[in-house]
Design a protein around this nucleic acid. Structure first.
Lengths: 230, 230
DNA sequence: GCCTGTATGATGGTATACCATAAGACCGAA
DNA sequence: TTCGGTCTTATGGTATACCATCATACAGGC
C-alpha cells in the first residue's frame, strides 16, 4: 500500500456522515430491502416520523431519494408505497446484470493480479462458510463482496453502483432464490468457476461463466415467482 | 390498434402531473443538462427558491432526487453542487452504454417488425434534417428517439432508464462531441449502419455496429476533454 | 334496502420559522 | 505587514404549521 505516502491527508478529520437524513435513508433502505416493509405497503409519512423519530422534512427527502433509486413508487394523490416488482422488470434486471457483470468479470480477468485474486479467494471462503450454514443473508454478503472486488479491480465503479441499485430492487427475490435447496450448492460452484477463470486470466471464459451464473439465478427466480410477485 | 376496445378506460381523467416538485425537478434537470448551471456550481437553496419561485421544501426534495440521479453532489457542510464529471467516469459511462445499447440493438434486430422499422426510419430522417442544419440539440433529440424506439421494441425499459440517466450525466460532453465537425457526418452514417443491420434483422452485425458507434463517440469525447473536465 | 349527498378525518403538498455552524470580513496588536 | 481573534452573515439541517384533497363513514331520501 502506498497509503502513507501522503501522511498529511491522513490528518484530515473525518466528518461524521451523521446527518439525520443519511441515517434515516440507510434505515429505510435496509428496511425495504430486508422486507420489513412489504412491496405495496403504503409509506405514510407521519407514521414514519414516529417510527424513526424524525420530522417529516427528513422523511420526505429520504423518500425522494428512494424514489429515484426505484425502491419507492409514488401513487398520484395517494403518496409513496414500496415499489412492487413485476417479473418482467426482474427479468430485465437479470439481463442487465448479465451484461454488466460479465463485462466486469472479463476486465477483471484481464488485469487481476495476486492481490485481487487473494481478495476473491477470501470472499469465496466466506461464501463456503455461509452456504454450509445455509445462511441466505450471509451468502448474499459474500457474493456481494466477491463482485465488488471484481468490479473495482476492473475500474467499473459506476457499473457497480448500477448493479448495487438493481440488486436492491430484486433483493427479496434474491433471498428467495438463495433459499432454494439446489441453489445452495449450485450457486457457489458457479461462482467458483468464475473465479477459476479469473485466476487463469481467461477473460472470455470468465465472462461466459458469469453469464451462465446470472442466467441460472434468473431461471430459478422465474421458477419461484413465475408470472409475478406483488 | 385495439385501443377503443375499452372505451371506458378512455374516460379516465388524466391527473395533471403538476405538482410543484415535479415541475421544479424537470426544470432543474434541464437546467443542469443544458449547462445553465455549470459543473461545480453551488446550488444555494434559498437562491433557487427565488429563481424558481417555490419554497425550500420543494427545492430540497428536488435536490435529493437529482442527487440520487448523480446530477448533483453533496459536499459535506457546504451543500449541493452540480456534479463534476471526471473523464474516468465518462469513460465508464460510455462502456456501459456500449454494453446496454448493443444488447438492446441486437434484441431489437431480432424482433423488429415493419412498424418498428418505420419508426426508426422516421428518427433517421429527423437526424438527417437536424444534422444538415448543424443543430447539436436537434441531433441529440433525434438520436435519443432512435434509441428509445430500439430499447422499447426489445422490451428493455429498465435499461433505457439507466441509459437515459447516464446520458444526462454526460450531456455536456455529448453536445461538445456532436459539435465536432467530422462527428456531424460520421455520426449519422454510423447510426444508419445500425439501422441497416436492424432492417435486415441481423442481431450480431447490428450490435457490432452499435458498439463501434459508441466507441467512436467515446474516442471523440476523450480527444476533446482529454484528461478531465471540471 | 340501495343509492346519493355530506361531513369528517387522514394524508400529502407547500411554506415558513428556528437553529447550529462554517466561511469570510474586519480589526487590532506585535 | 502579518498573524490571530472576533463578529457577522450566509447556509444547510430540522421541525412545524397550514391547506387542499381524497377516502371513508354516516345519514337521509327514494
Amino acid at each position: 500500500m502506498i497509503k502513507n505516502a501522503d501522511p498529511i491527508a491522513a490528518l484530515r478529520i473525518e466528518t461524521p456522515p451523521a446527518t439525520l437524513r443519511e441515517m434515516a435513508l440507510e434505515r429505510m433502505r435496509r428496511a425495504i430491502i430486508s422486507g420489513v416493509f412489504e412491496p405495496g405497503t403504503r409509506l405514510v409519512e407521519r407514521t414514519l416520523c414516529d417510527q424513526l423519530g424524525v420530522s417529516r422534512s427528513v422523511i420526505r427527502e429520504v423518500i425522494r431519494h428512494l424514489e429515484a433509486e426505484g425502491l419507492v413508487e409514488m401513487l398520484a394523490k395517494q403518496g409513496p408505497i414500496v415499489a412492487r416488482l413485476e417479473w418482467d422488470d426482474a427479468r430485465q434486471i437479470y439481463e442487465i446484470r448479465a451484461a454488466l457483470e460479465s463485462t466486469a468479470v472479463a476486465d477483471c480477468a484481464r488485469v487481476a493480479d495476486e492481490k485481487v485474486k487473494a481478495e476473491l479467494r477470501q470472499s469465496l471462503n466466506e461464501l463456503d462458510r455461509t452456504s454450509q450454514q445455509n445462511s441466505p443473508l450471509g451468502i448474499l454478503d459474500a457474493t456481494t463482496s466477491f463482485y465488488r472486488t471484481i468490479f473495482h479491480a476492473g475500474g467499473h465503479t459506476i457499473a457497480w453502483d448500477i448493479v448495487t441499485r438493481l440488486n436492491s430492487r430484486i433483493s427479496r427475490l434474491r433471498v428467495m432464490t438463495l433459499s432454494t435447496p439446489n441453489r445452495t450448492t449450485s450457486g457457489p460452484s458457479q461462482i467458483r468457476e468464475i473465479f477459476a477463470r479469473i485466476e487463469k486470466n481467461e477473460p472470455e471464459a470468465a465472462a461466459a461463466a458469469c453469464r451462465a451464473h446470472v442466467k441460472a439465478a434468473a431461471a430459478i427466480a422465474e421458477s419461484i415467482i413465475g408470472v409475478d410477485v406483488t
